[in-house]
Design a protein around this nucleic acid. Structure first.
Lengths: 232, 232, 232, 232
DNA sequence: TATGAATGAGGCTTCATTCAT
DNA sequence: AATGAATGAAGCCTCATTCAT
């Protein structure tokens, strides 16, 4: 059970193995229900070694949060290619986000569920990451407005409220996409872009947002929502 | 500390006291960190009595989830007055939602954080409630479309995707509103309606949604959502 | 092994059983080497009950120290019958002291060895007891001097230095008496009284001993106690 | 922190560094609370090397005890210059004793507190040292008596009882002097010499003290030391 | 209806000690 | 001569749960 027992690894490698095991265990069982015993076994290592390298359950959990938070923000930042127009950046950033959360469900569970549920210290850790993402999204929205030669006076406070809502919706959709078989990251991103860009009001007015076509992209091709042809 | 020690109460009353204590404790400490000892003390009752009435920690937690879920859905359903037009219903339903979550932070923590974080059994319990709400919102959106004489062929699947997003955003905003001092339920509802109805696209087109003034409502006075007619 | 397993005792009784077991275990094994498991078993009780009543190993140890300290001071105070002349009081107090330490070797080990060796907190606890005893002895010495119509100006500071030395010697002799088979409490008390009353000087009739002046010596010069000229 | 990390030292030197670190750690933390990790780090050496040289924690502790015991007895023996008269020898021996314990508080803690508190094996080790010192003091007392042309028949058993008391008092005073700022070794030695030489009896001129006869008393009858008849 | 007394089980953490180089 | 990597064993503590009244 767990990793193959390879002896005498350099510390850095072992630490990553331990974090892997910890993220999986914390993600599945939850922070409190996860036992250090289980984590150590899954890492193919004795418990004292885990303590030697990671100090305590709290520290281990914090290390998990930090690693996963960095991985997620990195994925989003890389996904949002800065050479694209802002709306496309947003869309591809969202796609990267949903792709990452789908590929790392345990990491996502650690960040979105566990870290928020077990104490202010951990919650603060993810709050920092979230703030970073919200700021990033805010910049994208402002850039989009600029590109559209629109509303140069948009107050940042206003926009960051919208960014909050957008990020919040994205988080919820990530859970939903993970829980709903057959929903791809692109579909989730498209749904959210439609929701965010056009709004329900537009939907009823017949205007839709069109996802870009996906040449050479990493994920599945099909868009989720049938997009009617844009109004002329 | 805890409830005043009144002896010999009828069972139904005692049970509610216990559930009150349990919700508070589960909400504050989390499911696992909450101890039956603390709950019993807070309820002003001995531990064996808790077991006599509620059977086990799991059953107690399930009872909490059920009670809080019912209270929340009830609040939303009552808030959304069926005699109003659909968009107004949605707005007032959201307001009721944010009002309830603000007034019952522990109950909301139980439903939104704890129940989703500690095992499939509990998660299923809230999932059922959520599905109910999503269905309700879906109906409201469809009704709104109907009232606007729009898109009679909107497929329910499509709309329920949007409903998902809307509910997801609402959940996130509830946390945000609870954590941000000075944000009222009405403000939260308005923010979300703006986001949902007008979308970011509208924002950049310069169109804004204005909250209606408020005649005879239970909460703050302002009326609901002014939906501007879609631009031709 | 351990106490006979009698079920369902009132708390006060169980607590004493636990303290008995704890004093024995701490006295024999030492504070750190004593395991809560062993104490619980010796008390005929499960470990959680020990924690329920005594809170922690530290608290349990503190409770032991307090109980044994009280018992010892009480024994001494009762032993020194106040109606006797002061020297007799001192002698009978010492006898009571040696009797008690001989009869409660574990309690004595807890006070004299363990409590002083495992942290300031515990040490302070016995220091308080010791101070009380030193004060008591100081009073006895002063009373003896008064009864002998001697040196009414004896400064208390001076005398309490002697009391310190006397108590220190008594403590050491208690260990010695316990370790040397065939030495009774009365013998130990007599030895000490002889030493204290007559001194070695009498033994060799050299009367007062004068410290040499300190030419080229390493330490500070002043002698501490001003030695009064020998009685005529 | 700890010793400067110098590589490749000859074994003898490394061993002393380890013992230095061990004595400090054992003295401060106590035998059980001291960890081999801490000792190794303080010695500026890896743990396996400590085991290579000193074998085990027990052996290491024993080595500490032996080194410190030898150092202490050596200091006393050197301090008591044999060319002086016996009383002077005693005084300077005591001074050397108090000087040494004041300069090596950790070593003294190891000998006086730790070694006596953690098992018969270690206790025996210091008991040997103590016996040696008691014998030495006994000889000094006998010599003093001889020099005073007194009591040539003093039985050694009697005197060694007094030596016991004297040494016990010295041990206690060493702790007291270390704990009381401003008390020098010479002062401590003088206090003890005064106490021993003049006694309390002189203080009140009551000369010899006679134990009461023991009618109906709880303890064993025999007094230990034959008390010579009081001077007229 | 209600509770004081009691425990089996399990989790976090630390330590003395060794292996392989 | 010296060490980075690793672990078996054990200790403190807490908890959900029950018994006997």
């Amino acid at each position: 059970m767990g990793a193959v027992k390879t002896k005498r690894m350099p510390r850095a490698v072992r630490e990553q193995q331990m974090l892997d095991a910890a993220v999986r265990t914390f993600g599945n069982r939850g922070y409190m229900a996860a036992s250090m015993d289980e984590i150590a076994e899954l890492a193919g290592v004795s418990k004292p070694l885990v303590y030697l390298y990671l100090n305590s359950k709290e520290d281990l959990f914090t290390a998990c949060i930090r690693r996963e938070a960095r991985a997620l923000t990195e994925a989003v930042r890389v996904g949002a290619r800065p050479e694209l127009p802002a709306d496309r950046q947003l869309w591809s950033g969202l796609t990267a986000f949903f792709t990452h959360t789908a590929r790392h469900p345990d990491g996502w569970a650690v960040l979105h569920l566990q870290a928020r549920t077990h104490g202010e210290v951990f919650a603060a850790e993810v709050a920092a990451m979230r703030a970073e993402i919200v700021a990033f999204v805010t910049q994208l929205i402002l850039a989009a407005a600029r590109e559209a030669h629109r509303d140069p006076d948009l107050r940042e406070a206003e926009v960051s409220g919208l960014a909050e809502a957008l990020v919040g919706a994205a988080e919820s959709l990530a859970d939903w996409a993970n829980a709903t078989p057959g929903v791809t990251a692109r579909q989730a991103a498209t749904t959210l872009m439609n929701f965010a860009w056009a709004g329900l009001g537009d939907l009823m007015a017949g205007r839709h947002w069109t996802p870009p076509d996906d040449s050479g992209d990493v994920d599945a091709p099909a868009a989720q929502i049938e997009v009617t042809s844009p109004a002329g």
